[in-house]
Design a protein around this nucleic acid. Structure first.
Length: 573
RNA sequence: CGGGGUGUAGCGCAGUCUGGUUAGCGCACCUGCCUUGGGAGCAGGGGGUCGGAGGUUCGAAUCCUCUCACCCCGACCA
């Protein structure tokens, strides 16, 4: 029996619906968009305090704690040790790693009464590394994995989708400390094992994908992604070889076009500027065109070329030419001497970066004169750019590993893992002495899980028109007992009896003892999403029967009263 | 930060364009009766600074100005 369940068994009242605070609503708030947002509010799990700030009501908090219990069990199982660090941080440590200045408005900052700069923790690399720097002396003390489940605060530019993107949220964050890269790989692998088990136990469908380490530093990073329409990220997946990556960095080979080599020729295209307009006008698919986009980097203007059916991947381009912005219409005309809409790759004196897919084939693009496009444009003949992958991977593009078509899926990020290396141990001087007495920086990793996102993803992935269908492992209760008419003595007695027996067997069972009509009880039970319902009605009772119904399958079974407890227990596993 | 939208009872909404009784409806809530296998019915009842401030007017939920909050799209996101 988990500690969470045990706490709730302490008071029988908390197993009675009439004593519990579960404010369900017939209608979802009008401003809720995501399914998980609507259902969690309607079913009485959460309430919004302000933008990006949520109150967890009793059953919401209980679900979160069930998730946290699973996380703790699996983290402890890999030898991680739970600690708790402050949410309020002195600026100094963040200044030492440089992130005080690197991070902008997203960090909540404040001053204490003495005027010292402080901030609210967005994450705890700085703090834990400070701790390690003071306490870790020798290779004999390594490796270590420390974790906490702690509130994080981020002044998000746009909180959204209920509890999916909030300004204050709970996060399980763990940090590994190792002597070298090889040892770090072991800690990293341990986390992979733990994460796989955690998300499996939480009943989620999920992928582990390559991700962009971003400002976190370090070279290797992965994200755990739960497929959902409410997600904010896209991942590229290959069913054949298993390639999986966030679209932020996914590579792909766009399908080849069959183009016939032709000589260069100009074509009049009056008032046709965009690829869409020109391709419709010439009755050719957008893949036969080159999109020529002028951007301005910090150093110089750059002409970026991509195929007409592809999108420019700004992050990929940014890694090549540094920060840039799109040129204005006037700038384009001034620099290239032609109005936007009729720009072609030929004959310009500016740095040009083209997507690799343009290396083969014969294309159409702007003719560099108003109201004209040009056909027969071949790489190496009409233009000679620098080559790079600068397109966004799209559905059906070839897998970079095996060539099979990629599938793009919308996902919620529920966890991430980063190899940090010495990014934090160096500036904060977290050093240890190795076997030969040499001082070396600790090699670190950092690993996050968002319990609220796990809950939201579970709702997104498992619901129907009637409400939530919780995975058993994280449901607010295992069983709900529905005495349909509590004024009927036999009904009430049977329900109480079954309830007591289930509780005695450590089943987390809720008794709906409210004097409500049957319909109301069914609707609430379905909405809240408790996996198993035991329905006690006068009709069946006369034959000595009660009904056990599965929330997920909707299948109901009539069984003898004295078999109800056993059957329920068997169903809970 | 750019674009769009919404603020009227706990929730969902009408009324605003075209200013004029005591600001309405459904659900929820309270009391009574009745009812008990899918959010019943009847009767009675409570609940509103119409987001806020200022202005125009004899008179403002309604018109004007400012402001705040929230949602959606985009940018951003260790």
């Amino acid at each position: 029996m988990s500690s969470v369940v045990y706490l709730y068994l302490l008071s029988g009242d908390l197993m009675r619906y009439s004593q519990l605070f579960i404010p369900t609503l017939r209608e979802a708030p009008a401003d809720a968009e995501a399914i998980s947002h609507k259902l969690l509010v309607r079913a009485g799990f959460v309430r919004q305090l302000a933008s990006g700030l949520y109150i967890y009501l009793p059953i919401g908090w209980k679900v979160l704690n069930k998730i946290n219990t699973i996380i703790r069990e699996e983290m402890n199982a890999i030898g991680a040790q739970e600690i708790s660090m402050p949410v309020l941080h002195p600026a100094e440590i963040w200044q030492q790693t440089g992130r005080w200045n690197e991070i902008g408005d997203e960090m909540f900052r404040l001053r204490d009464r003495k005027g010292s700069d402080m901030c609210l923790g967005m994450t705890h690399e700085e703090i834990i590394t400070w701790l390690a720097s003071r306490e870790i002396r020798s290779y004999k003390e390594l490796p270590q994995i420390w974790y906490q489940i702690q509130t994080k605060l981020r002044d998000e530019a746009r909180p959204k989708s209920g509890i999916l993107r909030t300004r204050e949220f709970l996060m399980k964050d763990s940090y590994s400390f190792d002597t070298d890269e090889r040892s770090l790989q072991k800690s990293y692998n341990l986390h992979i094992e733990a994460y796989n088990r955690i998300f499996e136990r939480c009943g989620l469908k999920f992928y582990r994908v390559d991700s962009d380490p971003g400002m976190m530093g370090g070279a290797i990073a992965h994200e755990y992604m739960a497929p959902s329409e409410a997600g904010e990220d896209d991942v590229a997946l290959c069913a054949k070889c298993g390639y999986s990556a966030n679209v932020e960095l996914a590579e792909s080979v766009p399908p080849a076009i069959d183009s016939v080599d032709r000589d260069f020729e100009e074509i009049e295209t009056p008032e046709k500027r965009t690829v869409g307009e020109v391709s419709a006008f010439l009755k050719l698919s957008p893949a036969h065109f080159i999109k020529s986009l002028l951007v301005i980097s910090e150093k110089e203007p750059v002409l970026a070329l991509i195929r007409g059916d592809q999108k420019l991947h700004e992050n990929k381009l940014q890694k090549i030419i540094g920060n840039f912005r799109h040129a204005s219409r006037d700038e384009a005309k001034e620099i290239l001497g032609v109005e936007a809409g009729f720009i072609g790759p030929m004959g310009h004196n500016v740095k040009t970066v083209a997507d690799e897919v343009l290396q083969k084939g014969c294309f159409i693009s702007g003719a560099n004169k108003p109201h004209y496009h040009a056909g027969g444009i071949k790489a190496g003949r009409e233009f000679s750019p620098g080559w790079a992958d600068i397109h966004v991977a799209q559905e059906g593009d070839g897998c970079p590993g095996c060539g099979e078509p990629l599938h793009i899926e919308k996902v919620i990020e529920i966890g991430n893992t980063f190899k940090l290396g010495t990014k934090y141990s160096m500036p904060l001087r977290a050093f240890y002495l190795d076997e030969s007495g040499r001082e070396k920086p600790v090699v670190m990793g950092s690993y996050g899980i968002g319990p609220a996102r796990v809950a939201a993803a579970a709702v997104e992935q498992s619901h129907d028109d009637n409400g939530i269908i919780w995975p058993e492992s994280i449901a607010p209760f295992d069983v709900i007992i529905l005495p349909l008419n509590v004024k009927d003595e036999k009904t009430r007695e049977t329900a109480e009896h079954i309830h007591n027996e289930l509780i005695r067997k450590n089943v987390d069972a809720l008794l709906d003892d409210r004097d409500e009509r049957a319909g109301t009880k069914f609707k609430d039970a379905d909405l809240i999403g408790i996996p198993l319902q035991i329905v006690i009605g006068e009709r069946n009772l006369k034959e000595g029967l009660v009904e056990i119904k599965s929330r997920s399958t909707g299948k109901a079974e009539k069984i003898k009263i004295d078999k109800a407890v056993k059957t329920a227990c068997d169903n809970i596993a």
